[in-house]
């Protein structure tokens, strides 16, 4: 995903579930349709939560990776 330039970076480190998902949802309208949020969380629950949120709201998780002790998400606004 290093070739994608995110429109917004979100630092969600230290936030406990479901707050990472809440922050992504609150910020999704701050990027244009087709825009991308890069979010970094430390709560393991976000690995399931953020993809589930994206699917149920019709957005797209382009990638969700564990890097060291962090979870890095690229979320694309679809609508």
């Amino acid at each position: 995903m290093s070739d994608v330039t995110p429109d917004l970076e979100l630092d969600l480190k230290g936030l406990l579930c479901p707050m990472p998902m809440v922050r992504v949802s609150q910020n999704i309208t701050n990027v244009p349709v087709g825009g991308v949020i890069r979010a970094v969380a430390t709560d393991a629950g976000s690995m399931a939560d953020i993809p589930a949120w994206a699917k149920s709201t019709g957005n797209e998780v382009m990638s969700a990776e564990k890097v060291g002790g962090e979870f890095v998400f690229f979320v694309k606004r679809i609508k």
């Binding site: 479901p18 690995m47 399931a48 589930a52 149920s56 709201t57």
Partner: peptide
Amino acid sequence: GQLADAALFKADNMDVFDEIIVNG
């Protein structure tokens, strides 16, 4: 509403999420 739907979505698609959760 979104948070509720996300929780239900996870439950309905446990084939996808089971592994992620257990790995967690």
